[in-house]
């Protein structure tokens, strides 16, 4: 089931939380929303779930518009909101039963679905407790279980791994990846590693606008453009090496990483690679080349670069 967002704008008073954004998510795609706090991630997600009505624009979930057929859209979506607000005085099983009924699951199948969800989300040991007695991680799983119970075509997860311990984070990521193969998933996070690990496609949002859209590899490439190499050369005079490196045709700039140890940062000209030239230079001069490694632009840098503008 595809999600199509068309020129979505949402204003709170005079402030534009989301400013004219459009995108499409296809079935089997896991889209990660990335952005600083207040960038408009949650607002966009709430608009898709019909909890907020767009000021302008429209959103289609399959063939249904959130404006014309909110009831049908809601049936297709499994939603985990940001703070996962659950009824704390309700036993876990009762809550899942309530959600299953309200989602219109047939009576005979309710028990089976609940047991399935408890198994999938790893809630076996906790099923008779009240939700308020569960730890934050288990509450988060409860939120995920209620979102998945009716086997929705679309999953909207607002910070699904917040409050989980590292093991649980890995488990939940695996779960999302597995589910994501046949469903359309949108999740938000400000943990970059998480988005990189779970999502096929990353969309960075800042101040209500989309500033980058693509896979992690594409985004890095886009931000990097030029090759940067960390080079360490032993048994040579620092200044001599520095000048020689600068004279190589494919090199644009040379910088010190550690002056005393002859560690340099060599940036190549656009569309060029200078690794061969550096190696040849060392052979000619009789220097020992001990390190020649490309510096990868981290997603963190892409993120900072795009959102601090």
């Amino acid at each position: 089931m595809d999600i199509v967002v068309e020129q979505l704008t949402k204003t709170y008073g005079a402030q534009k939380a989301v400013d004219d954004i459009s995108f499409k998510v296809k079935t089997g795609e896991v889209l990660g929303f990335l952005g600083p706090n207040g960038a408009g991630k949650t607002t966009t997600m709430k608009a898709i779930t019909t909890f907020l009505i767009p000021t302008k624009g429209n959103i289609w979930v399959g063939k249904h518009s959130v404006l014309q057929e909110p009831e049908k859209v809601k049936k297709l979506i499994g939603y985990l909101p940001e703070n996962n607000p659950l009824y704390h005085d309700l036993p876990l099983i009762d809550y899942l039963k309530f959600v299953a009924r309200i989602q219109g699951i047939e009576k005979e199948k309710i028990k089976e679905r609940i047991l399935e969800m408890i198994r999938v989300c790893g809630l076996e040991g906790e099923k008779h407790k009240k939700i308020g007695e569960l730890s934050k991680g288990y509450q988060q799983r409860t939120g995920l279980a209620q979102a998945l119970i009716h086997d929705p075509a679309v999953l909207i997860l607002d910070e699904p791994t917040s409050g989980l311990d590292p093991n649980q984070i890995v488990e939940i990521r695996e779960l999302i990846k597995r589910i994501g193969k046949e469903k359309t998933v949108i999740l938000s996070s400000h943990i970059l590693a998480e988005v990189e690990a779970t999502c096929d496609r990353i969309m960075i949002i800042n101040k209500g606008k989309i500033v980058a859209d693509g896979s992690a590899v594409e985004l890095r490439k886009q931000a990097q453009g030029k090759e940067i190499i960390k080079t360490t050369i032993e048994n040579g005079k620092t200044d001599e090496i520095f000048t020689a490196l600068q004279e190589i045709g494919s090199v644009e700039t040379v910088d010190f990483i550690e002056r005393g140890k002859n560690i340099f940062e060599v940036q190549s000209k656009p569309e060029h690679t200078s690794r061969r030239d550096i190696f040849k230079l060392c052979v000619e001069k009789g220097w020992t080349l001990t390190e020649l490694s490309p510096i990868e632009t981290k997603l963190e840098d892409v993120f900072r670069h795009l959102t601090l503008k």
């Binding site: 779930t49 909890f51 939603y79 607000p85 704390h88 309200i102 209620q146």
Partner: peptide, 14 residues
Amino acid sequence: RSGTIEYLMTKPVS
């Protein structure tokens, strides 16, 4: 107050 309204209103009920 507790935000549970968000879960309720995004379920398929009018």
